[in-house]
Amino acid sequence: MTIRSQMRKWKSNLGWGVAWFGTALVLFGLFHLLWTVLSKGITSFRWDMLTTVTHGVAGGLQNAILGTFELILISTVIAAPLGILGGVYVSEFAHTKVASVIRFLTEVLSGVPSIVIGYFGYLLMVLNWGWGFSALAGGIALTIIMLPYILRTTESSLQQVPLAQREGAWALGMTRFQAISRVVWRPAAGGIATGVLMAVAIGMGETAPLLYTAGWSSLNPTWHLTGHQVGYLTYVVWTYIEQPYPEAHALAYSAAFLLLVIILVIHLVVRILVKRATVAAK
């Protein structure tokens, strides 16, 4: 073997070695992060945090947990129909040009910084429409964050349904609406559910769009949609870790821990759904 080819082999090994090192670095960062938050979270989490509200820098997280659920509920109720029906249009009805324009602009919308969406919500809904910091303003801000994901996943899972299924439905004399509502959506349902779940996970972790729209409250949320501030978990993580008190830190760690656990569970469910869908497809 010549020296030159040995050098090339050695370079190849070196290159892949560096590549493995890079991968290890990413994995190390992620696991260090997970380990830090989970271990600190477990030690500071108490079950009575689920049943008490925040008092000053201490207390529990009930208001934030319920507030997060209320915000997610509002945003999902708005974003899921918009996104799913929009995805149906892009996949089933739109001409190729129109579809690609909508697809492109939806991707652009998902690139708008979340703080800009929050500030827009503040200017329009909180100030201009006079809703004040409120659940509805926060929910609509989250809707704008979640909508692109739901639309895109709905569209791509409908695209994977074979054309023959639609043709079969049309051949039975169904209109397009009947074909979609009785036949085409079934194989795509898993994918659509996955998209909605992922959007929920994304919405739960958002802070920036809510700072200017939902405000903060240490009381449990009421069903007043406007004029009443709501608390949410990510706010606790952000503000309480910067307080100098150990009780406040415990609350911040617990809130981060809860968020992480919920998001991990959603990811797990999504994985199972996807796996089931691919097994069924086979």
Partner: peptide, 11 residues
């Protein structure tokens, strides 16, 4: 990609 940014900030 799915970890909330406040949690990354906390870390």
């Amino acid at each position: 990609a799915g970890i909330p940014s406040v949690v990354i900030g906390l870390w």
